[in-house]
Simulated scan of single mutants.
Amino acid sequence: MIRHTSAPLASLSLDLDNKWAYLRSRGESVWQKRPSYLPAVVPRIIDFLGERSLACTTFVVGEDLTREADAHAIASLRHAGHEIGNHSQSHLPWMDALNVDEMEREVEQAETLIAQVTGEKPLGFRAPGFSWSPPLLATLVRRGYRYDASVFPTFIGPAARWYVKLSGFRSQQSQATAEDPAPAEQRFSSFGDALRTLRPHRVATTAGSLIELPVTTMPLSRAPIHFTYVSFLAQKSPAAALAYWRTALRLCRLRGVGPSLLLHPLDFLGEEDEPQLAYFPGMKLARAAKLKLLSEVLDHLARGRRVVTVAQHAEQVDLTR
């Protein structure tokens, strides 16, 4: 059982996009025909976090809420005490390339479905692929959002974009169809993002201001520390992966950063669950080994910190001003 303390804060978020969206990112058109895995993985997430008395912010995709079984699964997350945030309607990792009207539709459609399923309008937003832009933030302010959590301050993101270009992944531009039109390039954050603060802060937009709560990366180096990356390191050495995570937490404490840890649904799946996703970081670990690692990661996160939702973490920005 994880014990909570009064301060300082850390937060936990989960980007609950359907795993077949990863195939879409590779330019594989078969992604739309795959059955959803959310009804199977969500109860696992609820049980795992519930055993540790942890609540997280779950950013959900509107399209997933159009399927009854998926909507029921996401409703069960809210019933279990987890915050539901907006992760856009269609999970386009090039959202920053859309025009303002298209951005508005992506936000509004998912927002409407989330409210229908949970009975509550979402307070926060995370852009798919961290593809935020100033017009998107202004859209969120106009729609009454309290915070955004789309900034990923790392140099790895831009490097990943070049890797995608050079590794032979097929261009979405060449694969675009009337049912799934898309520009060719995914953002994966930018070099400018890597230089941004890791601390929650207010951001001014043309429509007003809102709180930005970045995904935490390693202070100083800005290397990723989200659990998918830690599990990727664990494929080579679990001990080295945990040492890396503990180093990140020590640096966060020294730099006065309240860490915000990002999870993905694949963090709750092992290689035996879906061999077709073996290329994805961390998916060469057995489920039991991965969940053991995640338990240790969360235990270290909670030592001397109170782990809260992203909304609760963001709220402290105004309370401490």
Rank of each mutant, 00 (worst) to 15 (best):
N99K: 13
R222C: 10
H87I: 03
A184I: 00
F152T: 04
S25D: 14
N86D: 05
S150W: 00
G304Y: 01
E179H: 07
T247M: 11
H264M: 04
S209C: 02
V230T: 06
V257N: 06
G258R: 04
I156H: 03
L166P: 01
P43C: 01
T197Y: 01
Q109P: 00
H300Y: 06
E104A: 15
S36T: 11
H264P: 09
Q109E: 02
R67S: 09
Q32M: 13
S295M: 06
M103T: 10
R3M: 06
G81V: 10
R26V: 05
D318H: 07
S53F: 05
P181G: 03
R52W: 01
T154A: 02
L38V: 05
D273R: 02
T118K: 00
P224K: 11
N99C: 15
A302G: 11
F48W: 03
Q276Y: 04
L213W: 01
R170W: 07
D273K: 09
M218N: 13
G270L: 04
A314S: 12
L210M: 10
S25Y: 12
T5E: 10
P39T: 09
A243I: 02
Y229M: 05
T309M: 03
H72V: 13
V257K: 03
L301V: 08
R246A: 08
R187A: 04
A97C: 14
A314M: 08
G208Y: 12
Y145K: 08
P183C: 10
F59I: 07
E28C: 11
E179M: 06
G50Y: 07
E272F: 09
L269S: 12
L213T: 10
A110D: 08
R321I: 08
S171Y: 11
A97S: 15
L262F: 13
T112K: 01
G304W: 01
L9K: 09
S6K: 12
E212S: 06
K33L: 15
A75Y: 02
A159N: 03
